[in-house]
Amino acid sequence: MSDVVTPVLKRHLLSIDDLTREQAILILDTADELARISDAPIKKLPTLRGRTVVNLFYEDSTRTRISFEAAAKRLSADVINFSAKGSSVSKGESLKDTALTLQAMGADAVILRHSASGAAHRLAEWTKGSVINAGDGTHEHPTQALLDAFTIRKHLNKNPEQNGGVGADLTGVNVAIVGDILHSRVARSNVLLLSRLGAKVTLVAPPTLLPVGVSDWPVSISYDFNNAIGECDVVMMLRLQLERMKSAFFPSAREYSRLFGLDMERLAKGKKSPLILHPGPINRGLEISAECADSADSLILEQVTNGVSIRMAVLYLLLGGADA
């Protein structure tokens, strides 16, 4: 049969490092096709009927959980939400025991959100099903990066003959990722994915919020947002956690906002009226002004919509075939 996927994905999606360029494009293309179905009046496909998907969330993240849940349900998978709060987990059950329990329940995939970097890697060692990393500490959040890449590709290929960029990568696209790179799993996954897809990535942050080992990343570094925004096609703003202030990463929210926040004035310095992305939830007035968040170039809500398509694609490509 000619319709067997050639770049078969690994069993787990733990890091963008698990994906080749071709596999990443396959996910984006699959999401593109699934997005059309999501637009149809009947939003349910029988594809994953009989599969069980567990949302195992050790951190509150309603939007990511709902996005995965919607994706799984549209593919007719059974979804079990397992929130760490108020469960046996909060009574001291180890991640390993939880993993073994979920396996005994017959979970085909576990979607894990956890505050510890590498938690998804650990879980993958203890469970037979697929593990999808839905954010692990300050490490990675691969599906967020995929939906960001998907959103960017779609918008930069809007003409009908470009067909939403199906099959294409992001060669030549300039992306600035701005803010707390050090603690951002979104940034790590995006740096890997966007550069793998050919985009040129610039990190914009105060030196305190860049990791010491950043020199090894395939990016340029800028401490000057005004300068960096000039050639950008896309500006990706990261959420700033205010508690970082206590550890002396920056002097005050006001100073941070002035130097690294996005407002209309700064946006106007961009020569290409850049697209605005933000993984949410946003701090209006801190890393991004309300005007920018609501502007025509802002794709923040579209990211949410695209998130469901990307997660459907990942679930389909991991679970839609024979058991590994």
Binding site: S117, G118, D136, G137, T138, H139, E140, R185, R188, P211, V212, G213, V214, S215, D216, W217, S247
Partner: peptide, 21 residues
């Protein structure tokens, strides 16, 4: 070395583990 998890460097930056410089 508050919350430090591993050597601070290229690997810690990649893994998102707090560095022990």
């Amino acid at each position: 070395t508050e919350m430090a998890q591993m050597n601070e460097g290229i690997i810690s930056a990649k893994l998102g583990l707090t560095g022990w410089p």
